[in-house]
Design a binder for these strands. Structure first.
Lengths: 214, 214, 214, 214
DNA sequence: TATGAATGAGGGTTCATTCAT
DNA sequence: GATGAATGAACCCTCATTCAT
């Protein structure tokens, strides 16, 4: 039973990007990325991507590293631990989300425009999906992590303040809760709710009196 | 595996010569538990408890087994896999919540009573916390599990129908989303919202006309 | 977040045939097979089937039970342990194989017929595949199990005796080894060897002198 | 998992407050091993050893790790999965066998020497046992693993080519199959066949004409 | 008698994190 | 500074076998 093989069968020691074996072929230039400023930022963005796709439980060092295509050690190098990375990622998300949410109302002048903007907000396309999932994951993670909870608190306050500029503090609280619930439902609905329904629901929640057109 | 290996396989560790369990070490109490009907149900309840405490990611076979105080193998025996266990646990949760939610409106006759019941519902004590967290975890898990999603869909429909008996289909949808959002906020609030605020928000969302007292 | 569901959601407690959960639907007649003589034999045949498909390592109580569609307990009931089951299964295989091998030469009268029969034996279709794989598994298992080894020894002797009737004891030993090797190769060949080649190889190994036609 | 859970998660067992490893229990020697180049190769060799001793089914991560005396995690680090490890181990085996098989014929010049070398090959001592068992396991594993099958195919071709240099292509195929069968029998024989018998069988299979001495 | 339930061992694999280079 | 290697914990799951019914 003893046989012979083409001698230098190389033992197949080059492997995929799973952070295990480094490719060792002589002369093959491997991972040319060295001096890489804002690698840290890219890692955070990747973390958010992974968070969307796999959830908090799936956002591991390895998945994130694979997603940005940096070595595993690079992720542990830039962040003290996974919890730290998570917090910073969510902080980045809040930052981005806040500026988006504010700019959305830039052109709003009438009650109708206001409602329409919010309907867009609930029905928004892929971007909405991403941010909705992240918001969801954020909420749940905050439930068990005080640091995230504080971050979440600030974020909620900020959002309500933005709304309050247009509809007053009380309605802002209501609207914020309503939006939260509707986005949650939209995310999970088997088939999407028609825009008219969303518009009606939101419209009835905002007091039209007090707007320029009223 | 070497499961069938005959006599001189020499691989056994920590076993007596005849392959049986070694007599219990002094002090280690041998678990005498046998014949335990409805163990399966108890496991499901334990799963929900663990889910509340540690979240979906923390609801492992081991945590659950430890929580019901059954051997690990018992959990894997009763459920084909963890996903299956999860689905059955959430199904049990839905079942329980359903009857609670329905019975809550038993005495409701006036608009004020209806609002009050919902305020209670949002502000409920520890039981509320538990079910809110479970609901939350359920939503998030449903996001990535079609089976849970279907379960969630039915549940949403059912609860909207219950609300619709009192306030009509349209307001039921609004109220459902609003409750969802408020419970979410209540769960995460640093300090709880005063009941009056909740009452006002809910009250303004229900059309008081058409009630006996109106 | 607390919802209601169609009340009796049944918790999905009926499961597949993996030996875990028994279906409990009232009135559903389950597994009508009771008085079942030769169940033991059917289990052995199933064991051989599983052995072919999954190898020794995959021939577990559960797989075998599933393959004959009997409860797991039935397999452990009829056989003291897995090793015992394995031995009995291989014994059954040897028994079957021996009678086949003997009957194959019934019509043989000339050197050409003898060679042809052996070529058929090596090139045989699905039945050949099955018995070749089993023979292979048997050999390897015998390597580490003295009981199987004795069984194998007897079998080899028997086969050689059958061959010896036609070609004498010495050539019988050679032929037996050659057949073994060729079947092994045939089993693993990427593309099957042409019959002529097999015929030539076998033909040259048998001394044609001493046959009726010679 | 609960990997990221903050402060009060209370799930840790056997860990000190800061989440580090508790200081080694007296008497338990802490494994100081670090920096161990060619550990991967040593693992492959260990895998082959375990393969010989326990068969493919017994060649588990844990057995292999114990055999090289490295932590379990080290084995899973160096190989993506067990199948991968298996393939690389067999590839290493083929590589080794190849050079051995080729060098064996270095001095061969006459028909008698050639036969004698092959008799040695079949009757070889402990080294023979090891390589024969590995060859056997390899064959069987190849039956169900296409990757191994390709490897096996190449190996067969190569060894037939080596034989063909001395006895021509046709006889090489025959001889290869014969050797295979004889080694198989030798491995399982209750008492070893006398060398003379082996010599006679092999000798009759090689055409002595065409050799220098003929 | 036959079988569902129970259980402890162990298998493959993933992971956060540490450390030497 | 940056990263491959190393490692121990834990996770999901399958299994042989025992036992009560």
């Amino acid at each position: 039973m003893d046989r012979i093989a083409p001698s230098s069968s190389s033992c197949g020691r080059d492997r995929t990007e799973d952070g295990r074996q480094a490719p060792v072929k002589a002369g093959t230039e491997r991972r040319p990325r060295r001096h890489d400023p804002d690698r840290k930022t890219r890692i955070l963005d990747a973390a958010l991507d992974v968070l969307v796709e796999h959830g908090v439980a799936g956002a591991t060092h390895r998945h994130i590293a694979a997603h940005v295509d940096v070595p595993l050690g690079s992720v542990t190098y830039h962040f003290a631990n996974l919890a730290d990375l998570q917090v910073q990622a969510f902080a980045r998300y809040v930052e981005q989300q806040t500026s988006v949410f504010e700019s959305v109302f830039d052109e709003v002048e009438t009650h109708e425009q206001f409602v329409e903007v919010l309907v867009d907000f609930v029905h928004g396309g892929p971007a909405r999906h991403r941010s909705a999932v992240l918001g969801f994951e954020f909420h749940l993670a905050a439930l068990r992590n005080p640091e995230l909870r504080a971050l979440m608190h600030d974020w909620t306050k900020t959002s309500q303040e933005v709304l309050a500029r247009y509809i007053g503090a009380d309605d802002a609280v209501r609207m914020d809760a309503l939006l939260e619930g509707m986005i949650m439902h939209a995310l999970l609905a088997i088939e999407p709710e028609p825009r008219e329904v969303t518009r009606a629901v939101i419209g009835r929640t905002v007091d039209p009196s007090g707007w320029p057109g009223a």
